[in-house]
Amino acid sequence: MFSFIKSKQTEFTQAVQRRIHPRQRTRLRPAKLANLNNEFICDCSIRDISDGGLRILLNQDTDLPNEFYVFDVVHRNVSEVELCWRKELDAGVQFVVPPANIRHFSNTGLQRLAQRLYAMDD
C-alpha cells in the first residue's frame, strides 16, 4: 500500500550515500554558464554548493556540454565543472577547477562573463 514511500526513501538514501561533501543551500544565487570556448550558454541559479560541486537550476531548457564554466555573480568566482547529472532544469556538477575569483583569470572570454551585460558575437 505504501510502496511509493519506500521507493522514495530508497532513492533518497542512495543519493545521500553517493554524496561525499555536505551541501549548503545558497538561496538561488545568480550565475552564468559558458562553454570552454568562452561562448555564453545561459543564465542559471546556484541552488546548493559543496566542496565538491554545485547544484544549478537553469533558466531555460538548453543542452549542456560535458565540461563548462560557471560564473557565480554574487561572489565573482569562476569554476570549471563537469556535468554529473541532469533532470529537466536541475543539474549537478562537480568541480574540475575549484572556484577562484574572476580577477585571477587573464582569459578575456571569462572576464566578459563578469560584465553586467554579456553580449554574444554574431
Rank of each mutant, 00 (worst) to 15 (best):
F105H: 01
R19D: 01
V16N: 12
K6D: 07
V97C: 11
L117K: 15
S79G: 00
N35S: 03
L54M: 14
F105R: 04
N59G: 15
W85I: 15
K8G: 05
V97D: 10
D63I: 09
I41E: 03
Q14F: 04
G109W: 02
V78E: 05
E88R: 06
A91S: 11
L57Q: 07
A31C: 07
C42F: 10
T13W: 08
D48P: 13
T26S: 03
E67D: 03
L28Q: 13
Q24D: 12
R27Q: 02
L58A: 13
D48G: 03
H21K: 14
T10W: 15
P22G: 12
Q94M: 14
A31E: 02
L33R: 04
D121K: 13
G109N: 00
M120G: 05
M1T: 14
Q60V: 13
L36S: 01
R25N: 10
T13Q: 13
K6W: 06
V93E: 09
Q17G: 12
K8S: 11
R55V: 01
R86F: 15
F2R: 15
F40H: 03
D51V: 06
V96Q: 05
L117S: 01
N38V: 15
N107F: 10
S45G: 05
R47H: 12
S3P: 00
D90A: 00
D43H: 04
Q94G: 06
F105D: 02
I41T: 04
C42S: 11
G52Y: 05
F2K: 14
F105L: 13
F71L: 10
R116H: 03
F71G: 08
N35D: 15
D72F: 00
V93Q: 02
R76L: 07
R112S: 03
S79V: 13
R86S: 09
N77K: 04
S7D: 01
R116F: 08
P98V: 04
R103T: 04
R19I: 06
A114R: 02
Q60E: 01
P99C: 07
R29E: 04
K32W: 00
S50T: 01
T108N: 02
A91W: 04
V16H: 07
P65Y: 12
P99K: 00
V93A: 05
N77D: 15
M1K: 10
Q111H: 11
A91Q: 07
R103E: 04
H75M: 14
K6F: 15
L64P: 12
Q14Y: 05
T10Q: 12
L64C: 10
A15L: 05
A100M: 00
E88W: 01
V78S: 02
F2I: 12
D61R: 09
V93L: 01
S50C: 09
T108A: 08
I46S: 00
G53A: 09
Q115K: 12
I49R: 10
L64I: 11
R19P: 01
F12I: 06
R116P: 14
F68E: 00
F2W: 08
R27M: 10
V70T: 08
N37A: 02
N107E: 13
C84S: 08
P22K: 06
V16W: 14
K87I: 13
N107V: 10
T13D: 01
T26E: 08
L64A: 05
N59S: 11
E88I: 01
D48C: 06
D121V: 08
L28R: 14
E88T: 08
Q17D: 01
D43A: 07
